[in-house]
Design a protein around this nucleic acid. Structure first.
Lengths: 276, 276
DNA sequence: TTGACAAATGACCAGTTAGTCATTATTATA
DNA sequence: TATAATAATGACTAACTGGTCATTTGTCAA
């Protein structure tokens, strides 16, 4: 099994330098000083190597973060989080580079799903953290806060990693903690509403449940006056409970409510649900 | 010439979906309904197509931003900037996707240099903007502010583009303006120092000049007490004025000062200069 | 209808890719 | 030492890549 680790190590180096696609199996085996056949004794495909690398490092990273978020006292929590993050990034800088720059497309569906899942876990860890640190007072802006924190981490990491800056980690952490605190204390206009967050915090393939949709529909129906939009919503609710209309009709009903400011979101969720 | 536009349009679509590398010329010509030969009548290579696409959209984008930054009164400046940005992104969402997710490596040096140049222009536009909006009081934190603004733009764009969210642009702009204002008013601990910014704001290939380095060296020499580090610095200054040591010696001298807190930066710049 | 010119084609080239497998080398066991 | 089992090799395949170019098609004016 030591061969497997050698391959993972050397491959990571090349991937960080050139990206997944631009690195060939031949290059990896040359760099390891082994034959191409030997590679396929350890991994059944290049794809499998990539997935194993992702799993290996993400499991470590997420559990590090999660631990520090759950086992540090409230006052040092933010510092601990940023420290743990940049500690991990420095220790595994090759992986960090891949994490930050390797884009969505190119690779397999499996890869995307897995990354999304890890991202989701990270979101939950950050959410736990800010709820512990700031309590209920950031309720309305917590999703924007998650996003801002992830933004800071990403951008400053990219800055450091791709310019090979010598880093004063202490300063970086203090600076990011301050930015986070400032935003938490003064932000009043959230952009990421709970509605949007439900979409972001669920996995890509698991849809909003029919029951959730119906609940949301009823809520919206109460808000609206008699109108084409309200009737459309009502018919869509009927369709949810007992499908009877053709796709064309459903599409038309969705079109009716699409531009109503109160219905944009529900229209989006319904489109997602009816796969239109 | 209409053929050329067709190719650019269709190619952009495929690039946004799959990335540059994963999209073949064959795929593009199939999607356009033309022959492979016809492609090479309009572009002399795939690379040329990519560069033309980048130029086409970046010139538009940068000039839009620059105009709005220079021709809006101070009070609406931030709003105008974020509006212009998201207007552009919505209008050219395929290009925006490429801009946000297409990573550094993979492509040619020419591509990297050009992107860096546009990025640099954007930095300058944002700098102009925040200096106009906030005046001298943000002097010490202005580079962190640039970075935070770019972080917000990038992250919220990614959020919107890759989840196909229906966007309330007004809300988004108000939310980002607020975040920016909050940071500008309360941030006190900058991470991006003027030293770092000199590195970021210059193009990749233009180095810090020898004269600037010597000036910086003399400054550091005055700060230090007699020590191995000071002697190393002195010898390095000598090497700058008149090269005489072998690369191994220079490397050793740099190693001597690498971990001294006062010398991290100068050591980095010298490594860059001596190409070690 | 003809001839001249430009536009468009797609078979073809040389190179690279991920992945296979008959063959050979190495090691452990008896 | 002889045998069996395992590890490792690298020439090979089939598919695909960016790019070329002899050939065909389309469009004019004469």
């Amino acid at each position: 099994m030591v061969k497997k680790l050698l391959i993972m190590e050397k491959a990571l180096e090349l991937f960080a330098k050139q990206g997944f696609e631009a690195t060939s199996v031949q290059q990896i085996t040359d760099y390891c000083g082994i034959s191409k056949g030997a590679f396929y004794l350890s991994f059944k495909s290049k794809e499998e190597l990539i997935l194993e690398l992702i799993d290996h490092f993400m499991k470590q990273f997420i559990s590090d973060i999660d631990y520090s978020v759950k086992n540090t006292n409230k006052d040092d929590l933010l510092s601990a989080f940023f420290y743990a993050t940049y500690q991990s990034f420095q220790e595994h800088s090759n992986f960090a580079k891949i994490l930050i720059q390797e884009q969505a497309h190119s690779l397999s569906e499996e890869f995307l799903l897995r990354m999304r899942d890890y991202d989701h876990k990270l979101d939950k860890a950050i959410l736990t953290m800010i709820e512990r640190v700031y309590g209920p007072k950031i309720e309305t802006i917590k999703y924007d806060l998650i996003y801002s924190i992830k933004g800071f981490v990403n951008n400053y990491s990219g800055l450091i990693l791709f310019n090979n800056l010598p880093v004063d980690v202490d300063l970086l952490v203090r600076s990011l903690v301050e930015k986070t605190n400032i935003l938490a204390q003064h932000m009043t206009i959230p952009f990421v509403s709970p509605e949007i967050s439900t979409l972001l915090l669920r996995s890509k393939d698991e849809k909003v449940s029919k029951e959730q949709l119906i609940e949301l529909l009823e809520q919206k129906l109460n808000e609206l006056d008699e109108s084409i939009e309200k009737e459309s919503l009502s018919l869509l609710k009927q369709q949810l409970l007992e499908p009877s209309f053709s796709p064309a009709i459903v599409k038309g009903l969705l079109e009716n409510i699409r531009n109503h400011p109160h219905c944009k979101w529900i229209s989006y969720l319904l489109r997602d649900f009816f796969e239109i």
